[in-house]
């Protein structure tokens, strides 16, 4: 019963040219999807700083979506290729630290894939709903507030 009340907070980091436009298309096609997602628009996936993902978790996000142009479709030719490597390395590191990488969904959604965007959001909301609130990370984040350190 408790699980049902949990509405995960999802932050989506998307590029302007493909996924943001794809999500716009979802809108113009009036396809419905879960309202848990908040989209942050970047010019390119290459611009997405991995620190922002960490900060989102620290600030209370339960799940993250990162999406950009399909390979070879990047508006800037190579930003998504660089981003892909960065994520590959980051994912490995996060997993090794015990950060729940199931909570981060990486995808490519083009400007024409409005339906894919809706599906992506719905799927990830459900995945994270299953996983529950990201208490571990929040606890670490709230360490200070618990009075263990009073510097």
């Amino acid at each position: 019963m408790e699980k049902k009340e949990f509405e995960p907070k999802i932050i989506a980091f998307v590029c302007n040219w493909c996924t943001y436009a794809g999500a716009d298309l979802t809108g113009t096609s009036r396809m419905k999807y879960a309202s848990n997602v908040r989209v942050v628009r970047f010019p390119c996936t290459g611009r997405i700083d991995f620190m922002l993902l960490l900060k989102a978790f620290a600030e209370g996000a339960d799940g993250i979506i990162v999406s950009g142009c399909h390979p070879n479709d990047c508006h800037y030719t190579a930003g998504n290729f660089h981003a892909r490597r960065r994520w590959m390395v980051l994912r490995g590191l996060m997993d090794f630290l015990g950060i729940d990488i199931r909570r981060i969904r990486f995808s490519w959604v083009s400007a024409g894939e409005g339906a894919k965007w809706a599906q992506l959001v719905n799927e990830h909301v459900e995945t994270v709903r299953e996983l529950g609130p990201y208490e571990n990370y929040k606890k670490a984040a709230e360490y200070l507030k618990e009075g263990m350190y009073n510097g």
Binding site: L54, A140, A141, G151
Partner: peptide, 25 residues
Amino acid sequence: QWIDPWASPLSNMEWQINRVMHLAG
């Protein structure tokens, strides 16, 4: 302020993630 300057498990971990990512490759 990307990383809190004081020592707490989260900011310590964030620092280590940054250190390691910056050294990747």
